[in-house]
Design a protein around this nucleic acid. Structure first.
Lengths: 195, 195
DNA sequence: AGGTACATGTAATCTGTTACATGATTCA
DNA sequence: TGAATCATGTAACAGATTACATGTACCT
């Protein structure tokens, strides 16, 4: 959905080098988001140009070419903007997980409304699936091809049901639309690390 | 994953025009596969060049520009080849559904082995998730941020569990590696419709 | 006459993937 | 000294998205 924002959020959780990010995208973040190191380096370059992130030279050993990136205030605001102003569709489940991750790291962003909307949309979709189920697979004996078609539909139905259960569990953790916590602790001082 | 093969399989189910396909990709097929009309027309053009599909002019009204596409023998063989020779990863669930769909329309293709492998890989992934769950979220009281992180992990765990249940249900419908049913009824005669 | 659905396409752009390339450090 | 890991990048290509463009058929 949005690789740069995925990277920003990962960097908000913990400043890192491109190489680190590539590995993190193969692990925890990568459970629902993928990015190759080429994508990461390209986006990091763009985001430096845009003033969203800054390079903090690794003081440990200046000899290495290792560059650690840190999100600046502008970048954090961009994340907030993206979370607030990018409406997701029913199918963008991973993007919603990403928004949750952003919410976890930059404070409550009022995701409740969007989740409620997604729940509605997914409920409607489930109803549609069930109608198809009744219509096409209500008969007692099905031939092989139809059984497989039914299995495909059932995959959709089960996924839908489980997502709705999950969403109901998550809902209480989210509050309504709220202001950003501006005083969130900055992990790196933008005034010192940039320019 | 593979737009051309998704289109081929859709055409095997029922010959259609580019326009029809675009709508079908917004409905049934689109539950797990997306394609815009531009993608579809481009791929149809390529597949005609490759000899995988042929245009059957709509005899109903020759006046319309409507072009109905039909899969040729070469195209059907290509589908079979793709299903057999394209190993999927744990995350390619939609691609596996597509293979199931192909299996439903061109006869048993021996998907059992691949499903068994995917089950193994997904089980291993679930074990990994559960380890993370124990390690990071085993403590009784979690702060807000951690609760959200946990919710994200739980989404992954639930999705994994449900997929495994589904896979166990599908397994009995699949047999081992087998030959293609060459004598499958052709919906359009390649010798008459092409060249 | 005007709007909607049908029907197909081109062009520009953006994103993602693959291949190639370089060089430092660490350990056996 | 040679292999693996760390670390960053360029270049070419393939795939997807968006905007633009055109014209017919049908209904009101």
């Amino acid at each position: 959905m949005s690789t740069p924002h995925a990277i920003l959020i990962a960097l908000l959780e913990k400043p890192a080098s491109g190489y680190d990010l590539a590995r993190r995208f193969d692990r925890a973040i990568g459970f629902f988001w993928r990015a190759t190191h080429q994508q990461i380096y390209r986006e990091l370059g763009r985001m430096v140009e845009a003033g969203w992130v800054a390079v903090v030279e690794d003081e440990a050993d200046a000899a290495t070419r290792r560059k650690v990136y840190c999100v600046l205030a502008v970048g954090r605001e961009e994340v907030v903007r993206w979370v607030r102003e990018t409406p997701l569709g029913r199918e963008d489940r991973n993007a919603f997980l990403l928004k949750l991750r952003a919410d976890a790291v930059v404070g409550p962003l009022g995701l409740r409304d969007e989740l409620l909307r997604l729940i509605d949309e997914n409920r409607a979709q489930l109803v549609l699936y069930r109608e198809i189920e009744q219509r096409d697979f209500g008969t007692p004996s099905l031939m092989r091809g139809q059984q497989l078609q039914y299995a495909i539909l059932k995959a959709g139905i089960r996924a839908q049901e489980v997502w709705l259960e999950w969403a109901a569990d998550v809902l209480p953790l989210l509050d309504g639309d709220s202001d950003v916590d501006i005083d969130v602790k900055r992990r790196c001082d933008p005034l010192r690390s940039a320019d």
